[in-house]
Design a protein around this nucleic acid. Structure first.
Length: 461
DNA sequence: GCATGATCATGC
DNA sequence: GCATGATCATGC
């Protein structure tokens, strides 16, 4: 191979040859000789045929002489020449049995993933792996501010293991560094040191939003992001969540009119749909035309809730519509709804007073507990079952259709309801509905029950 | 007053 | 043209 494995510059220069090329372009001869059997993922093939070493899962870095790991990851294209990550980046497997005795600074995770040679290729459906085109090759290290957040993420994952709760770990527990399930669908249970309960195998991962920012930093996109935290020192005695919540403190119990007082009416027109999102940005000190960098990196979902004076949220909270034909072919582990319920949320609660003014009441970060995630899975499985059986409509009464989708009575956490322009705004049904014979149905989505938001998010702690 | 089905309005 | 956040309408 045409590089020196003990020389960073040499490795990088050699790697740049991949840009805008496929594996077939750069190592066609070796590939097409009889050693390549048309099998293997992109990363493995790249290691073997381009870098000339056998894929390994050692706990030392791939280019161990220079302390750099090799990671490959797929991109999707959003608008011409702008790339987004197709998925999270899966890092090393979490060794439940050993990790509790590690310190972050000397951890396997940090040794292996602090310095990464990132190779991003454009994923295309129905294209052979060796024909994927590499788009970005970059020498990347964890930035100092991110390192503080990642350190706390790593520690909180360890803490759960130390408390005998490895089986309750969720990606929503943490900010940038997740612990994603890895291995055979839902199976692959492993022992943990401080509990008899076996836990799903998990690996450290950079969340999808975090990867988007790595991509942006390596490809010099002009960014329209505002930062909440500019120096690692700010994180020395406060967590990220504390810092964010404290920014809301001066506005607590103030009316929405007081909060936006003196600000331009154009941006703070209370009829505008992004009004509350603008108010949140204002409170956090972010320009209105900017996105909040840390939230985007962490995939944090901000939900503004208005509580009626009796404390019940005025509305349930909706999520993106699901496709009927997709859900019947998916497992829970790969479903979009699982990603949603394993996200971290920022809830901003306003409350209507007796005289009908709206005041900022409470702000909190939240993610679903283990039991609530299981409950969401039950709702999801039931929904899948109904669509699979063609059993959507229960009866028609006075021209109105009543469905079998899981209602609020089915689960205290979540229910399924229409979410469409009108009843004619539909997605195709993979199996015709038995009662009506319909082959398409009004778009539906999963909702969080307002009573659940009151009892398990607003009222707790 | 709530649950469920239905629909609206804006911005990309 | 559609996703998203938000709201309406009706019957129990």
């Amino acid at each position: 191979m045409n590089y020196q494995s003990n020389d960073l510059k040499s490795i990088l220069e050699y790697s740049k040859n991949l840009i805008d090329k496929s594996l077939r372009d750069v190592c066609g001869e070796d590939l097409l000789s009889n050693t390549y059997k048309g099998k293997g993922n992109f990363g493995q093939l790249l290691e073997k045929y381009f870098y000339g070493y056998e894929p390994n899962s050692k706990s030392v870095a791939d280019f161990d002489k220079v302390g750099m790991e090799l990671k490959t990851s797929p991109l999707k294209i959003i608008n011409k020449n702008k790339f987004r990550s197709k998925e999270r980046l899966v890092l090393n497997i979490i060794n439940y049995l050993d990790i509790h005795s590690e310190k972050f600074e000397e951890s396997t995770f940090l040794k292996k993933n602090y310095h990464i040679l990132m190779i991003f290729y454009l994923y295309q459906i129905d294209v052979e792996v060796i024909d994927y085109i590499v788009k970005i090759v970059g020498d990347w290290k964890i930035p100092a501010v991110d390192l503080e957040i990642i350190k706390r993420d790593w520690e909180s994952i360890c803490e759960k293991i130390k408390n005998g709760k490895a089986h309750e770990i969720s990606e929503g527990d943490t900010i940038y560094l997740g612990a994603c399930t890895k291995g055979a669908k839902g199976g692959n249970l492993r022992p943990q040191p401080f509990s008899q309960i076996r836990a799903k195998q998990r690996a450290f991962s950079f969340k999808q939003g975090y990867l988007n920012h790595i991509i942006a930093s390596l490809s010099n996109y002009k960014s329209d992001y505002g930062k909440l935290i500019s120096s690692p020192l700010e994180l020395s005695n406060k967590s990220f969540e504390q810092i964010v919540v404290e920014k809301f403190n001066p506005y607590l119990n103030k009316s929405i009119e007081d909060i936006v007082q003196g600000l331009s009416e154009k941006s703070f027109n209370s009829n505008s749909k992004n009004f509350f999102s603008n108010v949140t940005k204002h409170i956090l000190g972010i320009e209105l035309n900017q996105e909040i960098e840390e939230f985007d990196k962490a995939g944090i979902i901000v939900k503004t809730i208005r509580l009626k004076s009796n404390g019940l949220p005025k509305e349930d909270v909706s999520f993106p519509n699901f496709s009927f034909s997709e859900i019947i072919n998916q497992d829970w582990e790969e479903s979009d709804f699982k990603d949603v319920v394993e996200s971290k949320f920022l809830f901003v609660f306003y409350r209507y007073t007796q005289d009908n003014s709206l005041i900022l009441d409470k702000v909190k970060f939240w993610n679903m507990s283990f039991e609530e995630i299981n409950e969401s899975q039950r709702v999801w499985e039931f929904t899948k079952e109904i669509v699979t059986q063609g059993n959507i409509v229960n009866r028609i009464y006075e021209g109105k259709r009543f469905t079998n989708f899981p209602s609020k009575k089915f689960s205290k956490v979540s229910h399924v309801r229409p979410h469409a322009l009108n009843s004619k705004d539909t997605y195709p049904l993979p199996i015709k509905d038995k009662v009506t014979g319909l082959s398409e149905y009004t778009k539906h989505c999963f909702w969080l029950n307002n009573s659940f938001i009151r009892d398990n998010i607003y009222s707790k702690d």
